[in-house]
Structures are given as C-alpha cells and as structure tokens.
Nucleic acid binder design. Structure first.
Lengths: 134, 134
DNA sequence: ATGCAAATGATAACCATTATCAATATGTCC
DNA sequence: GGACATATTGATAATGGTTATCATTTGCAT
C-alpha cells in the first residue's frame, strides 16, 4: 500500500476510500478513467460511490499527485504529476503513457511565458495495430 | 470570405451556415469554444442553432480543417489543423495558440510508434499576469 | 423547374461531472 | 479510551456540454 508523505492543503483526512483510490491509480500501468477507478475501487469497497471517486481524484489532482489527460471524449487520470506525454491509438483507442523528455526552461524560451506544467498528446497507430493493419 | 478547396468526405454541401462557421474560426486569433462560435455566428445568421454549430465544427475536425484543444473543463476549436501548441494561463484562464516546432519524425523516434498528430498543452502564467501579480 | 438526399432548427436525450445534504467516520483533545 | 468538532461519505438530484432525433428546408444534379 502506497503512502503519501504530505498532503499540503488544509483539511484532509486519510480515509480508507482515499487510500484505495491512491493505491489503484498509483498501481496502474496507464491512465484510468474515473469510471474505471470506480469499478476497481468497488472490488475492495463495495459501497464506495462514484462521487467519492471524483472528489478524491480531483483532490489528488489539485495536490499535484495525479494529472488529467484527454482520452477520447472524456478524461483519464495518471499518476505522473505535472508534465506527461500520452499516445492514443486511432485504431484501438488505447491510451498509453510514454516517456518524453522536454525541459520547462526550453519551453519557456520558445514560448516566452512561465511554464508550470506541460502535456504532450500524440495520436497515431500503436505498434500492435500497425502490425495487424498492414 | 475564406473558401475551402476540397472537402474530401462524400456528402457535403456548402451551406451558408458552414461558410459562416469556417469564416469565424479561420478569422479568429485564438481558440474558440463551440458556444463562442455559436454567438459569433448568430450575429450573422440569427436563426442558426447550436446543434448546427457542433455538427459543422465536428465535420471540420474530421476533415482535418480544425483541431480540438482543451480549455478549462470544455473544448475549444482552432484553425490550425493537426498538430498545435496551446498555452493556458492559470491566473486569467485565457488560452493562447503558440508557435512550436517539433517534428513528427522526432516524436516517432522517441516513442517508437507512428505519430499522425500531436498537441502540446502548457499551463503557466502569461506575460500580462506575470507583470500584474508580482 | 423538379426531385431527392443532405443539412438545418428545435428540442429532447445523453452522459460525464458536480452539487446537495443527512449520516458517518476521522483526528484531536482531554 | 471517550467525546466532540468537522471533514468526508453515500445517495441522489442537478448541471451543462454535447449528441441524437425528426419534421422541415435547402443545395445541387439532372
């Protein structure tokens, strides 16, 4: 079970629901939608409500512990805080996190403004679909 | 008035509503939400409906003539097709298009998959707010 | 001009997300 | 440990952006 060292913003209780949600998102290999987190959480806490999942994901997001990324027409959450790069396959719809190195300072130089976070979103054809579709 | 040379996908009529919507989006300096396009369009076509605006923006998006970008909790549309970079100010909430050069081939090399489109989203503090807030 | 399919306007439906609120659970202070 | 204050929860309703529906209108080929 993962433990968060400090949650900065004032009122905060380490509830079992929050624990489970952190555990799920941080244990995932890729981005998860709120609904996916909800279903995973229900396996451990059958009475947890979808509202609680949203509340906690938003809290974690405002704490900088998870990031939101676009997935199709909805939103998914990833454990990597702040900057991230995702790749969405146009064929199978899967969304991957991919490592990508870019410096904030490099962006700031190019853009001329203070950059706190960035995210890169790529769409294309994943390896597997590339192989199948040719 | 801007004219589109060819709209590839089969059934397509060059309606006055579509003309006005293309004109507005391509005449804009920055990303516009569907609602903003709707209100701008009503100035010229008082009876145009919001549904028509959405239908045409989605059509233009599928034709590759506009791109969707995230703005706050909603979606905005920009004329630059395919890849783009946007900067959202955390203070005033404005969303800017910024020039950014990155090669698809460079991304493909880093990611190892076929990249068709990319978009970079940065958040930070814009010049104006930087000046005010210090 | 005529005919027909595509597009529109008006409206209802959809669905992800947020707000509400009484009930519950957490952390603190004794 | 027990009691208190209040943050959080579960259940549900509300919200709001977006899409679907359908009768009517309009663009366009003949």
């Amino acid at each position: 079970m993962i433990t968060i060292i400090n949650m900065s913003s004032a009122p905060n209780r380490w509830t079992k629901q929050l624990k489970v949600i952190v555990d799920i998102v941080y244990g995932s290999h890729g981005p998860m939608t709120a609904d996916e987190v909800y279903h995973a959480a229900r396996a451990r806490l059958p009475n947890i409500s979808l509202g609680t999942v949203y509340r906690n994901l938003n809290k974690l997001e405002s704490e900088g512990l998870v990031s939101e990324v676009t997935k199709g027409n909805t939103t998914a959450f990833v454990k990597h805080p702040f900057s991230n790069a995702t790749f969405e396959c146009e064929v199978c719809g899967r969304l991957f996190c991919v490592p990508y190195d870019l410096r904030n300072s490099e962006m700031e130089r190019k853009v001329g403004m203070k950059v706190n976070r960035w995210s890169i979103r790529m769409t294309g054809v994943c390896k597997e679909c590339e192989r199948k579709c040719i």
